[in-house]
Amino acid sequence: MDFLLSGFIKAIELLISGDSYTWSAVAATLKVSSISMLLSLGAGLPCGFILGYFNFRGKRALRTVLDTLLALPTVFIGLLVYAFISSKGPMGSFNLLFTLTGIAVGQTILAFPIVAAITASIIENIDPGLKLTLISLGAGKRNTILTCLWEVRYGILAAAVTAYGRVLTEVGISMMVGGNIKWHTRTMTTAIALETGKGMFSNGIALGLILILIAFTVNLSLSFLRKK
């Protein structure tokens, strides 16, 4: 128990003193989670929309596959991505191993099914009155789709927040693909794992608290958006 309190004090110290080691991990975490969120939103929103909006053969099967992908363990994704980007792997020439970009690729695979699956069910559950109303007000196909998306923006925001939470806290991919390299690919979560491995439990607690603070800030700014 003693290390909880000292961890809390340490967290405040690290934040106030602008400890460069901590900030490097914070920066790495923010960079990599931003890229992976951009990529997974960019791919997941259209895919989720298509799955939710249109009816086509094999749609149910696709939904089942997508829902299954939600259960992918991060360590497994890490291993999968490693197999591809390892220098003996098919994409070895891109030199993505032990880079933030490599981690982002893995986290995108982690977040994509979340974004796509939640978006699909949000679109599926759109009030049928909405489409009827838009047509009645003279909207064309494009406007109908755009306005539908805009109408469910809070739901999509929730999908993004959920995915972000998963990306921000995962450790399996960052460790396996990033290699936890100091000053480079050491993220908040791999730093916590390392500190814990070193027995520096209070350091681990401190970093964990800072990670929660980041998540809190992100969610606070999003809920501010929601209110307006």
């Binding site: 960079k31 990599v32 951009l38 933030l100 970009t101």
Partner: peptide, 11 residues
Amino acid sequence: AAALSLFAGTA
């Protein structure tokens, strides 16, 4: 977010 990712890309 786009700006951040650019920044990350150059690192």
